[in-house]
Amino acid sequence: MKYIIVGTGNISRTYLKALEALPASDAVGYVSRSNAAGATVGALPCWPSLAQVDRPYDAVIVTTPNALHHQSAIEAARLGKHVLVEKPLDITQAAMDDMINEAARHRVVLAVSYQRRTNPDNLAVKRLLEQQAFGRIYSADLSCRFWRDQAYYDSAAYRGSYAIDGGGVFIQQASHNIDNYIWFFGMPERVRAELDTFAHQMEAEDHGAVVLRHADGMIGTIVASTCAPPGYPPRLEVSCEKGTFTLTNDRISHWHVAGIENPAARAEPAPDDGASNPAVTDTSRHEAVLADFERAVAERGQPLAEGSDARRATDLILRIYRCRA
């Protein structure tokens, strides 16, 4: 497949590197409103809008700031192009509705890069949960204790803002982990949260704690922070009818479950966790997302994180943010 990458920030280079590792796929060029027609980014051409791209391509990868995702996704869908969006899908329910509806109307695939879903141990746990192999789940405690210095928030005016980022640590750094939580356990019935800004000059929260109650009685907790130096790998601890298990950075680090062999896969090193640095040096999970996206396009099927499913992370985060009132 041939791609146009919308946006020229750091994450766009991650996708470019991931595409270079896929022999049958490549980037045709970029779209950036800040560049004039005929400009280049590196060795690739750059256009001010998708409508002005004059080379054939199959799909777009949207890497613009969070609140702008819907603009490019809707434009691409109307052009009949498939869409892969960097997380989150968007920051408002109205924008996400429009994206999903336009993709369906024009029969294009809409997927979100929640690449933690591709990790083998996460997939193994997901299968066991679908089989109800653990019995009743009692509790799930998610810890996302990350670190970002003030320079990170000062690097762009929109960082940590409600209007563009959509909020702070929950919608930005912890969004991947919250997506995994919902993918595993579904949406809670009740949400209670305490949020604040402690260590940074920014509009939104840099720390918060959430208690979630699910329809089956399970109690979940989420702690998310960017003021926990030096930054720690995300950790999910689960207690269930048959025992306990822990995922640390998406790898099974503890397993004490009666009657079920530990399904941990150890054939490859653990990928970056982003705990202390937003830069992505290992593109293997993005490569997996792209391969899954292309499979969905070829089979006219659903990607691993299709739009209406992936939106649930934003839906839950918006419920958490409403607790601020």
Results as ranks from 00 to 15, higher is better:
residue 296 A to P: 06
residue 47 W to R: 04
residue 130 E to H: 12
residue 300 R to D: 12
residue 254 H to D: 11
residue 296 A to H: 03
residue 298 A to D: 10
residue 96 M to F: 07
residue 12 S to T: 07
residue 3 Y to Q: 09
residue 21 A to F: 10
residue 291 A to G: 08
residue 92 T to M: 11
residue 213 R to L: 13
residue 154 D to S: 06
residue 105 R to P: 04
residue 305 A to M: 12
residue 200 H to R: 13
residue 315 D to T: 15
residue 131 Q to P: 03
residue 11 I to P: 00
residue 58 D to K: 07
residue 98 D to K: 13
residue 163 A to R: 14
residue 294 E to P: 04
residue 79 L to Q: 14
residue 35 N to H: 14
residue 260 I to M: 08
residue 167 G to E: 04
residue 66 N to Q: 14
residue 11 I to G: 02
residue 294 E to M: 14
residue 172 Q to R: 09
residue 271 P to F: 04
residue 222 I to N: 01
residue 208 G to P: 04
residue 61 I to C: 01
residue 150 Q to T: 08
residue 281 T to C: 11
residue 247 L to N: 03
residue 54 D to M: 07
residue 117 R to P: 01
residue 70 H to V: 05
residue 6 V to K: 05
residue 166 G to W: 00
residue 22 L to M: 14
residue 10 N to D: 14
residue 244 T to I: 02
residue 30 Y to S: 02
residue 234 P to M: 10
residue 62 V to A: 02
residue 100 I to L: 12
residue 234 P to D: 12
residue 134 F to E: 05
residue 87 K to N: 13
residue 4 I to F: 06
residue 25 S to V: 05
residue 27 A to V: 13
residue 42 G to A: 10
residue 213 R to M: 11
residue 135 G to Q: 07
residue 312 R to W: 07
residue 294 E to R: 13
residue 304 L to D: 09
residue 5 I to S: 01
residue 10 N to P: 05
residue 321 Y to F: 11
residue 135 G to C: 07
residue 207 H to F: 11
residue 250 D to A: 15
residue 301 G to A: 08
residue 128 L to I: 10
residue 314 T to I: 05
residue 104 A to R: 15
residue 113 S to C: 13
residue 53 V to I: 10
residue 178 I to S: 01
residue 170 F to R: 06
residue 60 V to I: 13
